Amino acid sequence: MTTRVRQTVTHLADGRELIYFDDTEPFVSGAATREVHDRRDLPPVAAASEIRRDPLTGEWVTFAAHRMDRTFLPAAADCPLCPSTATSATEIPAGDYDVAVFENRFPSLGAPSGTSDLVDDEPLWPRRPATGRCEVVAFTPDHGARFADLPLTRARTVVDALAARTAALSALPGVRQVFCFENRGVEIGVTLQHPHGQIYAYPFVPPRSRTLLDRAREHRARTGRSLQRDVLDAELRAGTRVVWSGEHWSGYVPAAARWPLEIHLAPHRDVPDLAALDDPERDELAVAYRDLLGRVDRFFPGVDRAPYIAAWHQAPVGEDRESGRLFCQLFSLRRAPDKLKYLAGSESAMGAWISDTTPERIAARLREVAP
């Protein structure tokens, strides 16, 4: 079921890039083109973000004060991700679309390049512009849809869009890590309800990725093998936490799952990122990902749409790339139909997680709610 996709690149009124990923006629064949222009009068985006290094942890912290006034939970009639109409101009000028990707109007990253300096002239606190790029991925023009309900052809188009943008952003100067993700639910902190994802192109390797890479490098030095490959093989051998398995992908609840609902979806082949997937792997990913998101929505009785984060862990660009391996971490902070998992003292201050369930119970429930 390989989907043919045409990319059309245009620009919004303030100069931001917009890319349509079309899988339907008359656009996919080129019989028609997206000639609609953004009719809004927008000022240029002024991203003045900076990053500062925490001397206690070595981590870079991003400061993006311009995001304080970003759009927050607008009514459906004012949604900026819906197609434009005769009376409403949105971030997507076309009257309809398949999948659309555009530069975020309120980006966390994307400050102009500049020189590094010190906060208060103290060597302990280096800072520099938060270069990079933030993009929004609108999965569908349907405001009330969810990813699990998309046709397989459209889910595959989203996969292709994420892969294409991963490749393009990885080639930008200064980018060290490309992170594709979806936040869903007000409990997660979303500011737009329309089904969408995001892509961050970081100018540094984030802390979680650094930890994964360090552990992978240590494991290879000790055993000569890939850590994530060994974890996947061990989960498949045990079978007790496997919830989905196909020819190219397997989904499982990790043996040390932190969240009350957590699934890792990993390819059977060692690949660094989404861009490296071949057509059969992308086809099956669309099936597996849609299936697992549907199970998340059925996991808690009486909950129609569980809040979740879908995070695509990819290999970094440049140094340590050989230590990275693609996988998706899908998790929810809901622990019961009417309760959330709060990261309190132990988790937030010490990073020491305490779970209210077991991975085996999570896996058993996910198998119960399989379609």
Rank of each mutant, 00 (worst) to 15 (best):
T2S: 09
R6P: 09
E59H: 15
Y200I: 01
A306G: 01
D291Y: 07
A77V: 13
R220G: 02
A145K: 00
V136P: 01
P195H: 03
V175G: 10
W60Q: 04
T2P: 04
T115P: 13
R282G: 01
Q7W: 06
H194E: 00
T240S: 07
H264S: 06
P195M: 02
P359R: 06
A216I: 08
R335Q: 15
C79N: 02
T2M: 06
P371W: 04
G189Y: 08
A65H: 14
A86C: 14
G110H: 07
R334D: 03
T90R: 15
A255R: 12
D214Y: 04
R335M: 12
V137D: 03
A76K: 15
V9M: 10
L12T: 05
L293G: 00
T87K: 15
S332Q: 09
R215Q: 14
G246I: 03
H219S: 10
E284L: 06
A201D: 03
H11A: 11
A86S: 15
R67N: 08
S49Y: 10
G239Y: 01
R127W: 12
D69C: 12
S245Y: 01
I309P: 00
R127Y: 13
R269L: 07
P195F: 02
L152R: 15
R208G: 06
R295H: 00
D38M: 03
D96Y: 03
A75V: 09
R6D: 09
H248R: 15
T240K: 05
A238M: 04
V61Q: 15
D121G: 11
E59C: 11
L73D: 11
H268A: 10
Y252N: 01
D142W: 00
R154Y: 04
Y200E: 03
R156K: 12
S332R: 06
T71S: 14
T153S: 15
A257Q: 08
D160A: 13
P93H: 06
D149V: 02
P371Y: 01
V231R: 14
H268L: 08
